[in-house]
Write a protein that binds this DNA or RNA. Structure first.
Lengths: 135, 135
DNA sequence: TTGGGTGCAAATCTTTTGCAGGTGT
DNA sequence: ACACCTGCAAAAGATTTGCACCCAA
């Protein structure tokens, strides 16, 4: 359809996302790349992340902290947001595909995406909270 | 803790949310109430929705359309976003509690919320799309 | 009376977009 | 050359917040 061209910017943005196990926001990726590529603009980061998402190369995560996170791993899996430190991490759940299928079966519309998100306190932050109380 | 007071505004906002089966945004609730309560301000709607959420009376839904939806029903259930018409609707899934529990069992942190969101095309919009093609 | 609640408007924050110039094909 | 792509900055949208006044307890 649209004849897609190569672009250096798209390559480095894709690469930046691939090299991360956390789930950075557009702003985070921009901040990481900016020192090495001073001409890079935030708009370009947003545009390319959106493009990669539409191509199905990456997925976006809206988990309720007001910013969109991105994930290079498009295999179905869940995410966890720590409401204390703000980190987003992967959750291995093998049920997701089954959840999606069991719902799709009865649904007269079309399902394209199934997101499973957990919110809570991560183990590290929970430890710190307990330590705080003991003081 | 905080000595909560009664407020007419909070009452009508809560009531507005109770009376809806869809999942309005702050802006939607504001628009609905404004004609009858011309002095109501959007900031008050946001403040009270946040308050009610923190009290556990309502839940918020961030499903990826860039706005926060609100739901008076706090019983665990899933949501569906139609990416064509933008409507958010309830999905009855009895698995959610089980998903949450099965994950909580092995997790060393604390889980407060489990959100399951589907995105796709609703039956109505799918029909329209098919009709469009036939033209 | 006292401190939470509200209205109003400005500020903040994230994301999108218009445009002129750059670049892959 | 012909679009697509980028940088830059402004704009758009959603949500938050400061402040003076209001009102429930």
């Amino acid at each position: 359809m649209t004849p897609l061209r190569n672009s250096k910017q798209r390559d480095i943005i894709r690469q930046a996302l691939m090299n991360r196990t956390d789930h950075p926001t557009a702003e985070t990726i921009y901040a990481e790349l900016k020192p090495q590529y001073p001409r890079l603009s935030l708009g370009t980061v947003y545009r390319n992340l959106m493009l990669l998402k539409n191509l199905g190369e990456i997925q976006s995560i809206d988990i309720g902290d007001g910013v969109t996170h991105f994930d290079y791993d498009i295999f179905p899996h869940a995410h966890f947001l720590c409401s204390r430190c703000g980190r987003v991490s992967d959750i291995k759940i093998r049920d997701i595909e089954r959840i999606k299928n069991s719902f799709s079966r009865d649904f007269k519309g079309r399902i394209t995406t199934c997101n499973v998100n957990f919110i809570g306190i991560c183990p590290e932050c929970l430890n710190e909270e307990n330590n705080d109380k003991e003081q």
